[in-house]
């Protein structure tokens, strides 16, 4: 009898410890891992960019404001841009990787593979974690119309301005990343950006969306865009 009681209580303690450890893993350890991973991705991008900058010095000097050169094809799971959102804080910057698999989302923000490329006509759509894995889009509901979303691909700064959002929808609403998303209020083709994350914070019943349009571009040689200067 005593052996049974003891074994059962030991099992209960073990289960409790397991749960506490798992919560610690989800809340804390995924963040530590993701922060390291995102740091590595940004380092990798910057090394890549400084390497290619020495090979082709100032070839982008003639880039016009409205029509940046077509970027090279993206490769699944590889970073190609860095995103800055001043509303999330001046130190907030995250790598953007190609593809929206769960393995990609562990390393940074994820670009929907079938949507437009950065700065091109169409809808450049990006998904990110609201919670866990570094909480990149934790402050998503604080975004407002007119906020800047700045991206760089190593040669050009792209400044998008939010037109609408945060807009709450259901997970099956794939229209929100269409080239001309109907509910955003856009009626004509243009250079748009869509961000998606989950809502509520820890749930998956809904999605939060913001839409933005390309406001301005400038070559990296001219320095940081106005939206990023303090």
């Amino acid at each position: 009898m005593r052996v049974i009681v003891r074994t059962v209580s030991e099992l209960c303690i073990t289960a409790g410890t397991l749960i506490v450890l798992f919560v610690a893993y989800v809340l804390f350890w995924t963040g530590v891992k993701a922060d390291n991973e995102m740091h590595d991705q940004i380092d990798q991008l910057q090394r890549q960019w400084s390497a290619s900058a020495t090979v082709h010095p100032t070839t982008k000097a003639s880039a016009t404001a409205a029509a940046p050169a077509k970027p090279a094809a993206y490769h699944y799971g590889k970073p190609f841009a860095i995103m800055y959102i001043p509303r999330f804080g001046f130190t907030w910057n995250k790598p953007v990787l190609e593809g929206t698999g769960t393995d990609v989302l562990k390393k940074g923000l994820a670009h929907y593979a079938r949507t437009a490329q950065l700065g091109q006509v169409g809808n450049f759509a990006v998904a990110g974690h609201r919670r866990t894995y570094g909480d990149p889009f934790l402050d998503f509901p604080k975004l407002r119309k007119g906020d800047a979303i700045v991206l760089t691909d190593g040669t050009t700064w792209f400044t998008y301005r939010i037109d609408k959002g945060p807009y709450k929808t259901v997970p099956t609403d794939v229209e929100v990343i269409d080239p001309v998303p109907r509910k955003s209020g856009y009626t004509r083709p243009g250079r748009y950006l869509t961000l998606t994350t989950c809502d509520p914070e820890w749930g998956h019943s809904h999605r939060l969306i913001v839409w933005a349009h390309l406001d301005s571009t400038q070559p990296v040689e001219t320095g940081r865009p106005k939206a990023l200067r303090r």
Binding site: Y25, T100, A113, R130, T169
Partner: peptide
Amino acid sequence: EPLLPFNDVTVDNQ
């Protein structure tokens, strides 16, 4: 961890 809902951040469930 992927069995929990925190990974569902896309609209097309890819």
